[in-house]
Design a protein around this nucleic acid. Structure first.
Lengths: 200, 200
DNA sequence: ACATGAATGGACTGACCGGTCCATACGTAC
DNA sequence: GTACGTATGGACCGGTCAGTCCATTCATGT
């Protein structure tokens, strides 16, 4: 990335990432060609390679980072303060609201993960890092709750966080297959019930 | 499918499906070419089209059915008798054992679902039907448990089944990203804790 | 205005892939 | 043994895709 970017160039690059992210979310990495992206962004082939010298790989990496930031940002206010039962309920509602308002069902990161994990270890590692960070917020909140006496002393925040995280992503997978937000709600409610079962 | 199959032909067809299923499980539908399958099965291009006249679509459909049956068969003895807490614990262990013994991480059906849902509605519908059937076993068991007084009368078997199913598939997704069976165990234990919270 | 480098357009290429086609080998019924 | 249908081999075709290349336009500093 030795080339300089003018304001115009940066805007074009950002436009490419955003639009391509939606295209890939809708049709998958393998199902989206550079020509699709070129058409969708009103750019030319040379621009794609100008801004992403590494070609599709570069672009996919940028999109993965963009998607991950977007997903985490939407929950950020809640993720930072998961130290009370009310906060968890609020997080649950914000997750449902966020994924219910998306033009597509399912989780952008989860979908890319399962598609790339078997074909592109480099990208998969990057995406996995985002998922770990995400799950870390849940664990940290549970840890604080345990230390505050809201959870039983023998509760395992890491393990509980994994379980909640699995419910979340499983629920998101089911929203895809059913084209409905209901499974996500059921999954998250189940996860919260599970947490309450570990209350002090 | 008007052609006749001799015993030899049926054996070849079965060999193609089994081997191709493993290839696709390892590298995805889009990441597996007919040439890969041809090489992996020691057959020729014409045989693939001889046994699957509809081409790759036909083959993928056959593989999806094969995978689904394989997965359900592995749990069948447990799925039919999910009407006690002991049975659920046994199911949990059998699921962990089954997915832990696979050469690859994650769920064959889940992976195909999320890959095909955006590109091939026909296959996605077939795979979704299998997932519904699978989830139905869980719901039926919970219904029997509620009727037997093991669950609270106001428990919603359908909703609980969705939640457990989501935990299962979320856990399987995490086994992929972490290359470890631990997340699945945590997810299933969480799901069982959630069920116990609905006990009478 | 002119020079420099970024931004853009789009034709072109080589590889890959799904699918077709024809030729050959095999097996079985008569 | 011969005739017919299945099983198999592999060359070939047309389309698509990622990636290359060169020409042109635009913006900016001097």
């Amino acid at each position: 990335m030795s080339t300089q970017l003018t304001a115009k160039g940066a805007a074009t690059r950002a436009r490419i990432v955003e639009t391509a992210a939606d295209l890939i979310l809708a049709r998958g990495v393998g199902g989206t060609s550079l020509d699709d992206i070129r058409a969708g962004t009103a750019t030319s082939k040379s621009q794609l390679f100008h801004y992403f010298p590494g070609g599709k790989n570069d672009l996919v990496a940028a999109i993965a980072a963009f998607q991950a930031e977007r997903v985490l940002a939407a929950q950020q206010p809640f993720l930072d303060t998961l130290d009370s039962w009310e906060a968890w309920a609020g997080w649950r509602d914000s997750v449902v609201a966020h994924y219910g308002s998306q033009p597509h069902w399912g989780c952008p990161i989860g979908a890319m993960t399962s598609e790339l994990i078997n074909t592109d270890p480099t990208h998969a590692a990057a995406v996995t890092a985002y998922m770990d960070r995400w799950r870390g917020y849940l664990r940290d909140g549970l840890e604080r709750m345990r230390d505050a006496g809201l959870l039983r002393a023998d509760a395992d925040p890491e393990r509980l966080a994994i379980s909640v995280f699995a419910s979340l992503h499983g629920g998101l997978l089911l929203t895809q297959t059913t084209a409905s937000i209901a499974p996500l709600e059921a999954a998250l409610d189940g996860a919260l019930a599970m947490l309450h079962a570990a209350a002090a």
